[in-house]
Amino acid sequence: MTDNRVEDLNIESIVPLISPEQLKQEMPISEAAVASVQKGRQVIRDILDRKDHRIFVVIGPCSIHDVEAAKDYAHRLKELADQVSDTLYLVMRVYFEKPRTTVGWKGLINDPYMNDTFKIQDGLHIARRLLLDLAELGLPLSTEALDPISPQYIQDLIAWSAIGARTTESQTHREMASGLSSAVGFKNGTDGSLTVATNALMSVANPHRFLGINADGQVSIVSTRGNPYAHVVLRGGGGKPNYDSVNVALAEEALAKSDLAANIMIDCSHENSNKNPALQPLVLENVTNQILDGNKSIIGLMVESNLKHGRQNIPANLDDLEYGLSVTDGCISWDETADAILKMRDKLKDILPARNN
């Protein structure tokens, strides 16, 4: 019994939500999607275990706000992925949740109509439908695990997950990630600190018990086995980049000191590009050159890419949204994307097969 004299004083309403099991019954995963997810997860695990010589590249829009534009991008990416598959394994970013420093649009799941109506139940349906469609194309998919409840609704379609810089230090997110079915990348802290990331990797590899929900939406005690495929993502911080060879070497030392695998992913965006999308291809080129010079720890890259270069503010009249242009972080265009990925493939195709020897 709730006593309104002392409880829920700042709660306006609580609305029941569809359960994960109900959503999956309405929108079941197909055999083609299962095969795609299983393959994607296994390839990434093999890359982290050095059983696959390729580099995996998590690439795509900063956030999804237009389903049709996302499908357009996905079809182009699948064609490009097939072209470079001997050297690079392309994983599409399908990010539905956006962390906010203060306030702002929180992503397609939270506010699918971008008008502060917060139709979360609609958002979950839209997000799951898109993931199903993209998985059935044969594309491996990635997302940021931000809300600790939402993975129950969509994680079955995800090949790789990210924990963002703002949440890497969060016990809640470390516990959640210990139970995720995909490999997971933990970004370094917003101040550039690696300690929060290495602590996270040690935490997530271990079993945890915490409060969560089950498939029927009941509050439950969740017990996890631990996730052995967590790794660090260098994204810059404190106003400085950290993708260069010196910072990569420092990251290798920090991982070794904590007895962690030397698996390092480079985020070409955020402070590694000074939040200027035009610099992302230069970061990618630098990382390519590090590998050519003998680096063995860099196993992945992240690139924010869309159909068009740059970003736009969300207009009052949503009809004024420009197609294929990000509404969150600035992205490189499709032409820039294809050019950068093809150049990377051509430079690395002969050296990567012998890299793990």
Rank of each mutant, 00 (worst) to 15 (best):
residue 150 S to L: 12
residue 61 P to F: 12
residue 122 D to C: 02
residue 50 R to Y: 12
residue 136 E to W: 02
residue 295 N to S: 14
residue 188 N to P: 06
residue 219 V to H: 02
residue 319 D to Y: 01
residue 299 I to M: 10
residue 158 I to Y: 10
residue 80 L to T: 09
residue 342 L to A: 08
residue 158 I to L: 09
residue 170 S to R: 05
residue 117 T to F: 01
residue 244 D to S: 12
residue 293 D to L: 13
residue 83 Q to R: 15
residue 315 P to T: 01
residue 146 L to M: 09
residue 351 I to G: 05
residue 53 H to S: 15
residue 33 A to V: 04
residue 247 N to F: 04
residue 136 E to P: 00
residue 34 V to L: 12
residue 134 L to C: 01
residue 292 L to A: 13
residue 189 G to P: 03
residue 10 N to M: 10
residue 325 L to A: 11
residue 157 L to F: 12
residue 338 A to F: 00
residue 58 V to T: 13
residue 130 L to P: 09
residue 265 M to I: 13
residue 72 D to C: 13
residue 301 L to Y: 11
residue 124 L to T: 09
residue 175 E to R: 11
residue 297 S to Y: 06
residue 329 D to A: 04
residue 310 G to R: 08
residue 7 E to T: 11
residue 356 N to E: 13
residue 252 E to K: 15
residue 74 A to C: 10
residue 300 G to L: 07
residue 71 K to E: 15
residue 291 I to E: 06
residue 148 P to V: 12
residue 99 P to W: 11
residue 78 K to V: 03
residue 115 N to R: 14
residue 307 L to Q: 10
residue 74 A to V: 06
residue 38 Q to E: 15
residue 302 M to T: 02
residue 268 C to H: 02
residue 17 L to M: 15
residue 44 I to C: 09
residue 188 N to C: 13
residue 163 I to D: 08
residue 298 I to Q: 08
residue 166 R to Y: 07
residue 181 S to H: 03
residue 237 G to W: 05
residue 132 L to R: 14
residue 332 I to L: 13
residue 348 L to W: 08
residue 244 D to I: 04
